[in-house]
Nucleic acid binder design. Structure first.
Lengths: 115, 115
DNA sequence: TTGACATATTCCAATATAGGCATATGTTGG
DNA sequence: CCAACATATGCCTATATTGGAATATGTCAA
């Protein structure tokens, strides 16, 4: 049983390096599919398919202009990652604080003995 | 051609929901494989295999104590994600600033005409 | 309307993956 | 040394996924 569907999980969507490249290329702003095809070295269908996946998880949005389709980042959808990371940072800070308190306690006791 | 090997890419390693569950369970500190098996509802081989993947990308580290193996998070390995996110936040902030500048320019010009 | 252009979609093959089960490896205590 | 325990591995199957090539869809321009 493979991984859960890329279309339902943002983490899976960015698991593919090519998709991350596409997201990177969209950082500077809206881009047409063709522009992405030129910039990154991928075939047009490949780019379209990856855009579809990114679209389905909401990481990009599409706008039709004439016969081309401009894709843009949807930065709001990066939130799951931020929240995910925050969880770990919070836990790590808590640990550091505990260590800090412990060290302070040691210093306090040492001071007591010295005097 | 499937996704690139999970063992070589941290993003792929966390793409699996079960592996994220394991990481979550390790937030509070070191845990033995058996403890993880009890907490999360996964089979022992399943947990061991996921731990192996997480191990290979460095997200967890292992320490043998008696006949059990204690796994712990390696928070330093979360850095690729932080850097990845930072890239987007930086870009988004830059965009916001540009909008801000633009609005200010508009206000300046409006003020000129008013006076 | 027709033809050129831009993008999406379908079908296909190759390949990885996750999970189940059985089993191997390694460790401890008696 | 042996038995019980803890964990890791190997083999297998079902399934998803990627990428390629060809083609469908849709849109403009003359």
């Amino acid at each position: 049983m493979p991984r859960s569907a890329t279309t339902s999980d943002v983490f899976n969507a960015v698991a593919d390096a090519h998709r991350r490249e596409i997201l990177d290329a969209l950082i500077t702003g809206e881009r047409a599919v063709g522009a992405l095809v030129d910039d990154l070295s991928m075939s047009q269908p490949q780019v379209s398919k990856h855009l579809r996946v990114l679209s389905e998880v909401g990481l990009v949005r599409c706008r039709a202009v004439g016969r081309r389709r401009l894709y843009r980042l949807e930065p709001a959808r990066l939130r799951p990652f931020r929240k995910w990371l925050a969880k770990y940072e919070k836990a790590m800070n808590a640990r550091l604080e505990r260590v800090d308190d412990y060290l302070k306690e040691l210093q306090r006791q040492a001071g007591r003995h010295d005097s």
